[in-house]
Design a protein around this nucleic acid. Structure first.
Length: 635
RNA sequence: GGUCCUGUAGUUCAAUGGAUAGAACAAAGGUUUCCUAAACCUUAGAUCUGGGUUCGAUUCCCAGCGGGACUACCA
C-alpha cells in the first residue's frame, strides 16, 4: 500500500560503508537486547582511537564512547570535536596542551584525519575531503538508506491504540496511534522484528451505557439507515446516556434524595448495571446487541485507522482476556507475595517499594483492570516470546505500570517482567486544559483530519501551481493535510505534554510537514529535469570534484541520518527523526538558494549536486516514512 | 496529605554536563526577467527564584514558587 516512489534497481539494504579503512565497530541499539546492530561510524572510529591515545599518552583507561565525539559547531573549523577537559587533571597539563597532544596522536593513528585545531580546550578534527565525497558516492543510489537489515531475533511487541468501543477517537488517541505506529516503524528500521498489537476495550459498563441509550432513544437507527459513521453513532448514545442520567439525578434530588443516592438510583444507571450483569451471564439478546454495536464501532475505527495509515498484526479484545490473570494471582498467593485480606479480596502490598496496597481480586473473586494486564502479559509472552513488550499508554497511567512491572518482575519473578516498558507519553492539552470526553471538550479525530484536508486543498488551490487530475489532487490534499497533522504531533518529545489550540489552524509553513514535502517535491523536479536532459547522474563518478562549503555541509548532515535512526530507536522518539529531517530540509533549501544545480555549467559539479539532491530526497522520503508521512513528487 | 511529571523568546517547540541556549509562528524589513516564493535572507526577543556539585549546569542535587497527573474492589 505504501508504494516506494523510487523505481530503482533494488539495492541490497546495507548500512553505509565508508571506503576508508575504518576500524569495525558496533553501535548498540536498545531494542537489540540479544544482538547488536552493526554500523561503522566516524564517531566510533574516533572514540576507539581516542581511547588508545589516552592510554598511550597518559596511561588513562576510558570506554570508547562515541558520545565523546560531537559534531563541530558551525562557527569553528573542523568536522568532529573532542572536549579534553575531562583529561587535563590526569594529564597534569594545560587543556590546550592536552588537546594538541591528543590531536597529534590521533592524526598519527587515523589517516581519515586531515588536520586539527585547538580552541580553548576543544579539539576540532577535520576529516579528509575525500571521505565525504566517497561517502556520497557509495550511498546516493541506496533507496534503503538508513534502514538496517532485519536481525533474526525475538520480536519487539508494541501495544498501542487500545480504544474503548463507546466513543469515536479524539486527538489524544491520535497521538497514541501515531506514536505507536512510528515507534514500530523506527524499531523495524533499526533491524528489529516488530509485532504491533491492539487491545480493544470492548466490554464493561461504558458500552452498556451506549446500549441502554440506543434501546431507549435510538428508534432502531443504524449507520446504514442514516449514514453516520458507526463509532460516532455509538458515541452519540454515550453522550445521550450521560445527558439523561444527569436529568434523572436532578429529578431524584428534587424529590429529596441525596446526591449519592441519585447517582446510584437513577433508573437509566440501574438499567445499564442490569445490562452488564446480563452480559456477564451471557444473555443472548444482550450479547447480540453488544456485538452489533461493537461492529458499528469497528467499522468506524477501521476507516480512521486506514486514514491514519496504521494497522495491527494482532487485535486482542478485552471480552476475551478480561478473565485472564486469576491463575497468576493464585500463584502469587501460593508464593506468599500476595495475601488474602480479611474482607476476602486478594491484595499485594507494595509499600516497601514506595507504592500502596493494591487490590488484585475483588472480594467477590472477580478481576480488576490490573489482573487482566497481568494475564495478558503472560499470554503474549507465551504467544510471541518477545524480547520486549512496549505499552504505548498515556502518562496518567504511570502508577499502574509501576505496579504492573513490580508485580510481574519482583513479586512473581516472571522472565518477561523486566521486558515490560511503559512508553509513557504526555497528554494533548487544549488552551483551557485536558480533553475530557464527558465534558465534550474533545477534538474529534475524523473532524480534524477533514479540516486538515480542506486546509491543504485551499492552500494548494491558492498557489495554483500545477494542473492535477481529480485523483491526483485528492491524493495530494490528503498527503499534505494529514502530513501536517502527523508531523505537528510527532515533532514534539513524546514524554511531554503538548498543546493544541483548535482556534489556530496547524501551520503549513516553517517547521512543518508541508515544508519538508515541498523540499522533496523540488528535488524531484530537479531530477526530472536532469532525466529530460538525459544526464547520467545516476551512476557513480570516476573522479569527484572538490566540494564547496554548502555541498560538504549537506553531505555531513546526510551522514548523520543512519545514526539518527538508531538514536530515535534508543529513545523511542519519532521527534528525533522529525527534527533531523527538518534541519536537513532547511539546509537543502538554503543550498538550493545559494547553489545552482541544473544551471551549473561544469558538468561534474552538476552531477555531484544532483547526487547530493538525490540522497537528500531518499533521506527525506525514508525519514518521513518512519513518521508515517508520505511525500509528493510535485506540489 | 503522599507519589510522580513539569517550568526556556509574546506563542508553540529544540538543545546525550560542553564553545556565543537553537528553530518556527507572530512582529518589522528585504529577495522573483533566474532549477517550484509552501522558498530564501535581515532585525528584535528567553533558561521561574535561591543555594549546591563541576574546569564547565537549561541539563544533575536541595529548597521555595507556579502548572499538571496519579493516589478506585472504573477501565
Amino acid at each position: 500500500m505504501q508504494k516506494d516512489e523510487y523505481s530503482e534497481p533494488s539495492t541490497i539494504s546495507t548500512p553505509p560503508l565508508p571506503t576508508f579503512p575504518l576500524a569495525i565497530s558496533h553501535v548498540f541499539c536498545i531494542f537489540a537486547t540479544s544482538k547488536p546492530t552493526t554500523v561503522m561510524t566516524l564517531e566510533k572510529t574516533l572514540a576507539t582511537a581516542l581511547q588508545k591515545a589516552l592510554q598511550d599518552l597518559y596511561q588513562l583507561t576510558i570506554d570508547a564512547d562515541e558520545k565523546l565525539i560531537q559534531p563541530t559547531r558551525k562557527e569553528f573549523q573542523g568536522d568532529r570535536t573532542i572536549v579534553v577537559f575531562p583529561y587535563v587533571k590526569i594529564a597534569r597539563k594545560a587543556p590546550d596542551m592536552v588537546a594538541n597532544e591528543i590531536g597529534t596522536q590521533l592524526q598519527k593513528e587515523l589517516d581519515i584525519i586531515d588536520s586539527f585545531n585547538v580552541v580553548k580546550g576543544y579539539l576540532n578534527i577535520s576529516i579528509r575531503e575525500a571521505f565525504w565525497g566517497e561517502y556520497l558516492q557509495s550511498n546516493f543510489q541506496n533507496t534503503q538508506y538508513g534502514i538496517f537489515p532485519t536481525i533474526q531475533e525475538a520480536p519487539v511487541l508494541i501495544e498501542y491504540s487500545s480504544p474503548n468501543t463507546n466513543k469515536p477517537l479524539h486527538l489524544g488517541h491520535v497521538r497514541n496511534n501515531l506514536l505507536g505506529h512510528s515507534v514500530s516503524k523506527i524499531a523495524m528500521a533499526c533491524g528489529h522484528p516488530v509485532v504491533q498489537v491492539n487491545l480493544v476495550n470492548d466490554r464493561g459498563i461504558h458500552i452498556c451505557k451506549s446500549m441502554v441509550a440506543w434501546l431507549r432513544y435510538g428508534n432502531g437507527e443504524t449507520p446504514e439507515t442514516n449514514g453516520v459513521k458507526g463509532d460516532h453513532l455509538v458515541g452519540n448514545y454515550y453522550v445521550a446516556f450521560d445527558k439523561h442520567y444527569k436529568e434523572e439525578q436532578q429529578e431524584l434530588i428534587a424529590q429529596g434524595r441525596t446526591k449519592e443516592e441519585a447517582e446510584q438510583k437513577a433508573p437509566i444507571m440501574l438499567e445499564a448495571r442490569e445490562m452488564l450483569r446480563k452480559w456477564e451471564a451471557g444473555d443472548p439478546t444482550v450479547r447480540n446487541l453488544w456485538q452489533q454495536m461493537n461492529n458499528w464501532v469497528y467499522g468506524g475505527f477501521d476507516q480512521t485507522y486506514n486514514r491514519l495509515g496504521i494497522h495491527f498484526d494482532k487485535v486482542y479484545h478485552e471480552s476475551e482476556t478480561y478473565l485472564l490473570g486469576k491463575a497468576l494471582v493464585e500463584e502469587g498467593l501460593n508464593k506468599g507475595v500476595f495475601y488474602k485480606h480479611e474482607d476476602g479480596s486478594v491484595r499485594v502490598n507494595l509499600e516497601a517499594e514506595g507504592l500502596d496496597e493494591k487490590v488484585l481480586l475483588r472480594k467477590d473473586g472477580t478481576s480488576v483492570y490490573i489482573t487482566q494486564d497481568i494475564g495478558t502479559a503472560q499470554l503474549r509472552y507465551e504467544e510471541f516470546h518477545p524480547q520486549q513488550m512496549i505499552y504505548v499508554v498515556g502518562n496518567e497511567q504511570n502508577y499502574h505500570f509501576d505496579v504492573l512491572k513490580l508485580i510481574l518482575g519482583k513479586k512473581l519473578e516472571k522472565p518477561f517482567g523486566d521486558s515490560i516498558r511503559h512508553l509513557s507519553y504526555g497528554m494533548v492539552e487544549l488552551p483551557n486544559g485536558k480533553m475530557k470526553s464527558r465534558e465534550g471538550t474533545v477534538v474529534d479525530a475524523d473532524d480534524l483530519m477533514d479540516a486538515m484536508y480542506d486546509e491543504a486543498k485551499a492552500s494548494t488551490e491558492a498557489l495554483g501551481k500545477f494542473q492535477f487530475t481529480p485523483e491526483e489532487a485528492d491524493k495530494l490534499y490528503e498527503m499534505v493535510g494529514l502530513g501536517a497533522l502527523k508531523y505537528f504531533i510527532l515533532k514534539v518529545d513524546p514524554t511531554k505534554n503538548m498543546l493544541f489550540n483548535p482556534e489556530e489552524s496547524i501551520d503549513f509553513n516553517g517547521n512543518t510537514a508541508p515544508f519538508i514535502q515541498y523540499t522533496h517535491a523540488r528535488i524531484c523536479s530537479l531530477l526530472r529535469k536532469a532525466d529530460e536532459q538525459q544526464l547520467a547522474w545516476n551512476s557513480k563518478m570516476a573522479a569527484i570534484p572538490a566540494l564547496n562549503d554548502e555541498e560538504r555541509e549537506l553531505i555531513k548532515t546526510l551522514y548523520q541520518y543512519p545514526s539518527t535512526v538508531l538514536v530515535a530507536g534508543d529513545n523511542y522518539s519519532p521527534a528525533v527523526i522529525a527534527n533531523y529531517i527538518y534541519d536537513l530540509a532547511k539546509q537543502f533549501n538554503h543550498f538550493y538558494q545559494e547553489t545552482p544545480v541544473m544551471k551549473e555549467t561544469d558538468e561534474q559539479k552538476r552531477l555531484l549536486r544532483l547526487q547530493i539532491a538525490r540522497l537528500t530526497a531518499i533521506t527525506i522520503h525514508n525519514g518521513m516514512d518512519l513518521l508515517g508521512i508520505n511525500v509528493p513528487e510535485r506540489m
